[in-house]
């Protein structure tokens, strides 16, 4: 099967990225435009689509915390969950100030690693 390293030409990796990356993402954006063009504001259908989009994003968030990529993998999962949970609590207590939540979570993540080390 053709893969990333099949051809030696300089342009091949770019074509690979264009097909497996650009096309694979933008077809969904184009379909989204066509669907969104038909949705009426304040309709039940739009509320449902928004709920699906939000649930999808929530699932992405949970996965980024539980099954991360890169260096974050080396941080214990309990520390990741605690930092995110307390960070979210701080965000709510601070009247939904996003920077408070982020600063708290990051401080706990980095501080926790120093404590555990």
């Amino acid at each position: 099967m053709i893969g990333y390293e099949t051809y030696d030409a300089w342009w091949w990796p770019y074509l690979f990225i264009a097909v497996a990356g650009w096309l694979a993402t933008d077809i969904w954006r184009w379909l989204g435009v066509l669907v969104g063009n038909r949705l009426k504001q304040d309709s039940a259908a739009l509320t449902w689509v928004r709920a699906v989009a939000t649930a999808l994003l929530a699932a992405v968030i949970a996965k980024l915390i539980l099954y991360p990529t890169g260096e974050l993998r080396n941080v214990p999962v309990a520390l990741r969950l605690t930092a995110a949970g307390i960070g979210f609590g701080a965000f709510l207590l601070a009247g939904k100030r996003i920077w408070v939540g982020i600063a708290t979570a990051l401080a706990l993540l980095i501080g926790g690693q120093f404590l555990l080390a």
Partner: peptide, 15 residues
């Protein structure tokens, strides 16, 4: 993994 873009775009476009 990118199907999620579709409902996001579909929710944003009417706005």
């Amino acid at each position: 993994s990118s199907i999620r873009l579709m409902p996001m775009v579909a929710a944003l476009i009417p706005e």
